[in-house]
Simulated assay, not measured.
Amino acid sequence: MPIARVASAAPSWLFDFAPVMTFSSTRIGSYDILIGSKNESSLVLKIPGDMVANAMILAITTHSNQHSEVIYHVSSSVRNLVKTSTIEKCVYQYIVKNHQTRSDGKEIKANKLHFKRTMTSFHIYMLLHYRLPLEGLRLMNLALFGLFTQQYNTYWREYKRVMLLADIYAPYAFFKGCFDDSNLECLRKAMVNNVEMKLFDFDPVNIELDDYLINIHIPGVIKYLLK
């Protein structure tokens, strides 16, 4: 059976990371806060795409002549935890190093993200800092016969977009579970020799998280999702 391998590091699943970059690169727009607890128990499931591909190749090869069904969870959640604090640090470092600009060419100042531990605190923050000022703008617009209608509508749409994103991703932002990867570990240990293990590496322990996030994953999110 001819097989190939994926040797170059590739971004992992991008869509679960998009809200982080949407918020942070929009302070790069307007918002510098994120939902999610910034403590050690808040985890993110993240593994390079090349490791997923290598695990798939080995699983197909191992079970090519078998009829049993085995579930492999390819994740970093047990063996190499990715904490929200790590993502916060890496996103900030990336934005500082790779200056972002607005559509008019002006450079956007990078600001550190602030995590809210509960949805209640997030809603209170948004109410005080954005919803109430928007209500003031709405009343002023009514008093001035629609002078600020365009500005109000733009800000209101952006506010609703952020609140919708927060509500959609809240269950995942506060998720603290880990997934059992014992089947994957058995598959890794079943490899014949060290050469094979090196060729088809999918051990999460070997991931250098800071380097991977800053140089591979975050650029991938910006290139494929935010452009």
Rank of each mutant, 00 (worst) to 15 (best):
N194V: 06
A10L: 15
D210K: 15
A143S: 12
T118N: 10
A170W: 06
M21Y: 00
S12K: 00
G36K: 00
A166W: 01
A7K: 15
G29P: 04
R102Q: 10
G177M: 11
L34F: 10
V221E: 01
S77D: 10
N80I: 06
F148L: 14
E208M: 09
I95K: 01
N194Y: 03
S182Y: 07
L139C: 06
L132K: 13
M191T: 01
Y92H: 13
N183Y: 02
M56G: 04
V96G: 12
S64L: 13
I108K: 09
M140T: 09
H129M: 14
L58N: 01
I60R: 02
F122I: 02
V195W: 07
E158L: 13
I28D: 04
N54F: 03
V52E: 05
V195K: 14
G220P: 02
I60F: 14
F202Q: 00
A173N: 04
Y130E: 08
E208Y: 07
S121E: 09
G220R: 00
L137R: 04
L213K: 01
V78W: 04
L127P: 00
N183A: 14
F202V: 05
P133N: 05
N111H: 11
S77Q: 09
P219C: 06
D180V: 03
A9V: 10
F179M: 13
I124C: 13
S30I: 04
T118H: 10
Y155D: 11
M163H: 02
V6L: 15
K189Q: 11
N39V: 05
T120Q: 13
I28F: 13
I216G: 02
V74Q: 00
D16A: 15
Y169R: 01
L165N: 10
M21Q: 04
V52T: 07
A9D: 07
G146M: 08
K46H: 10
H99M: 12
S41D: 12
L127H: 11
L225Q: 09
N206L: 10
R131E: 05
L144R: 05
G177A: 12
P219L: 04
A173K: 00
L147W: 09
T101M: 14
L127I: 07
I35D: 00
P133K: 11
L142T: 06
Y31S: 05
I216D: 02
L128M: 09
L147R: 03
D180T: 06
L137V: 07
I95M: 14
G146E: 15
V205S: 13
W13P: 03
K112L: 06
P48K: 02
S41R: 12
L14I: 11
V6H: 08
S64Q: 09
D181Q: 01
L199R: 15
P19H: 09
S42T: 05
V82Q: 08
V78Q: 14
M51K: 05
G36Y: 00
D104P: 06
I47W: 03
D167Y: 10
A7W: 08
E40K: 15
D32H: 03
L165D: 14
Q151T: 12
A53Q: 01
T86F: 09
K112T: 04
G105A: 11
E185P: 02
H217S: 05
L209E: 02
